[in-house]
């Protein structure tokens, strides 16, 4: 499988615009955004609803393409990658944590954590071992064989965290990771992400307007109407 060698690279955005068409009208979600994210950052993107946080994360993760402007992973321009190459990029370099859990409902917790490693064609025995270890790290060893519907919201989000980091991505993109969690669970999750950032030097970029999350970030970028304030 084709892989990208990004090393511990910087992510750069240069004059990025994203325009959506909605009901026949153009809505500009990002208006000429330029930004640099250094390896190992614990970065929060703040802003009210509709400010462009999720759009920015989608572009950073190669889930969407900018209308104009450039996004670089190290030297690599994401705009120059094909969809297949973007798939590989996401698989090997980016971990995702979404707002509403986003686990595959028909897989157990451990199978969900294994999923990315399976796509990476890792040895099945090693894959299962790493997935169980990671579930242990997020405190869910006893829930490994339960399906998402048998887990609480916080437990599901921890499984999503385990899945995002199990294959040691360079970057974890988290879209409002605490939005559906109570404050106790949210704190535990932030502790976990901070710990992983500190120990594994994984870059964390998360969008949020939750003061609790913002208070834990090492750097905050505030968006308003698709621009950095």
């Amino acid at each position: 499988m084709e892989q990208f060698k990004f090393g511990k690279c910087k992510i750069s955005l240069s004059n990025v615009r994203k325009v959506y068409e909605s009901k026949g009208e153009n809505v500009e979600a990002l208006r000429g955004l330029s930004l640099e994210i250094n390896p190992g950052e614990f970065l929060a993107i703040a802003g009210p609803s509709g400010s462009g946080k999720s759009t920015l994360l989608n572009l950073l993760g190669g889930l969407d393409k900018p209308t104009s402007g450039k996004i670089f992973f190290g030297e690599k321009d994401l705009g120059s990658l094909t969809n297949a190459q973007l798939c590989v990029l996401r698989l090997f370099t980016i971990g995702f944590i979404f707002q509403s859990y986003n686990l595959l409902p028909i897989l157990t917790a451990v199978e969900n954590v294994e999923y990315v490693m399976l796509l990476q064609e890792m040895d099945p025995v090693m894959r299962r071992q790493k997935a169980l270890e990671m579930l242990g790290e997020v405190g869910l060893s006893s829930m490994a064989h339960r399906r998402p519907l048998e887990l609480s919201g916080g437990q599901q989000q921890r499984v999503a965290v385990a899945r995002a980091i199990v294959s040691h991505p360079l970057v974890v993109l988290a879209d409002e990771p605490t939005a559906n969690l109570d404050s106790h669970t949210a704190t535990a999750l932030l502790d976990l992400m901070a710990h992983l950032n500190a120990t594994k030097n994984i870059t964390f970029v998360f969008s949020s307007h939750d003061p609790l999350v913002l208070s834990r970030a090492k750097r905050i970028i505030r968006l308003h109407d698709g621009q950095i304030e």
Binding site: G61, L63, N83, A84, C87, V88, R90, L91, F92, F96, F98, N102, L104, P105, Y115, V116, L119, Q120, R163
Partner: peptide, 13 residues
């Protein structure tokens, strides 16, 4: 949404 998740995680179309 589930298919979107699979694609986001690195599954090919």
């Amino acid at each position: 949404r589930e298919f979107g998740l699979m694609l986001a995680l690195g599954s090919k179309p």
